[in-house]
Design a protein around this nucleic acid. Sequence first.
DNA 1: ACCTTTCGTGATAGCCTCTAACGAAAGCGT
DNA 2: ACGCTTTCGTTAGAGGCTATCACGAAAGGT
Lengths: 223, 223
Amino acid sequence: MARTGADTPRERYRAQLREEVKKHAWEQIATAGASALSLNAIAKQMGLSGPALYRYFAGRDELITELVRDAYRSLADTLGAGAVGGADLAALARALRGWALADPQRYFLIYGTPVPGYHAPADTTAIADEIMRMLVDACAALTPEVAGASETPGASFGAHLEAHRDWAGDHPAPSGVLHRFLVVWTRLHGVLSLELAGHFTGMGFHPDLLFEAELDGLLAPRF
Amino acid sequence: MARTGADTPRERYRAQLREEVKKHAWEQIATAGASALSLNAIAKQMGLSGPALYRYFAGRDELITELVRDAYRSLADTLGAGAVGGADLAALARALRGWALADPQRYFLIYGTPVPGYHAPADTTAIADEIMRMLVDACAALTPEVAGASETPGASFGAHLEAHRDWAGDHPAPSGVLHRFLVVWTRLHGVLSLELAGHFTGMGFHPDLLFEAELDGLLAPRF
DNA sequence: ACCTTTCGTGATAGCCTCTAACGAAAGCGT
DNA sequence: ACGCTTTCGTTAGAGGCTATCACGAAAGGT
């Protein structure tokens, strides 16, 4: 199968120009953040004049949505490549960190400050689910037998998840695994986002060691 | 002492108008995010015309910086009020969550996606240090005697912090406490920011229970 | 009552998004 | 190879924004 569904030369050119626009967009985002993304400036950089790009993108919002989609896709592919031959949570976590450090603003485009009005389209959230599923799988592979008993004593969150596990779809993981996944997700995002936002700069310690320490705790039988 | 250093009626009026501008700014931020903040729109809302506000704020950036400062100040006051009579980490954490839920965009203005070029002024980071110090104090109060031994076996991050504890200033806490503070900070931020960003919506479970579960782990002798 | 400082205004430049109308170019079918 | 049709890129324009400037008006201080 052809990777791009472009038979006619027009669609070919169209897809190519769209990609070039997105390339410039990522450069702008990396250097000045997503809020500074200017469709007009991109047109100038490409030697085009102003409204030309509106033949290819309905507007700034559609371009950003496309970038969000590509970011999710890139993360899913990176995690998929980082977990070849069995779901290894440690490898997944380190792949996530590497991907985030390669372009912090790309990470923030997905997991950063949300725009109050914005709602991601269905196909984007589908990729987000795919990412979450990979992490759930890795968590399930971690504790295959004692999965249900890895709860912190006194905390009834596992029981609560038992009654609210619809979001996991048809995944056969016990609720203890789902709990572990949520903890993995939130803890990794916590260290990563603070590091990427620069809140550790000037503190002196190495953020990767903090990340590894948290990861160690996540891999333990009772997290 | 007077709370505002406004003796003359001009300074009085000036401070009052600045506050009114900030009030409208917070409303805009809460409903459309910080990137949609418009100095011009605020002027119109106040019955003023365009450039009038430039008598009171040097520009959009200065207004946002002022809002960031106020947000830090508000959080520091909230945490300070939530920890009267000894530093209680659980109370501090719940006060933090309540403050964040009251205005998610205000939380993101501090801990959200950073603008690549921006650097906070010194007095703002001073309030940030004050907040961190309150959390470090609460962590120190948690484990007064076995503080140094609460490390995860195999993870040498505590030893690393021993050599890089300059950021803690003159705080007498052992490195184990500093490690615990970092873990508290990153974990609470992890759950909170994902909840505030809406990444849990549609999942069915109650985010406060997840928060409480994480907090439970944080209060344990070995986190 | 005067003088000075401050305030708010309109005008202007430059950036942005996005729409509309027009001419040019390229692909497509015959 | 020729014409038709679709698409492309352009300029012009509306409306919004930040920010600066110069001017008149208002208010405070002496």
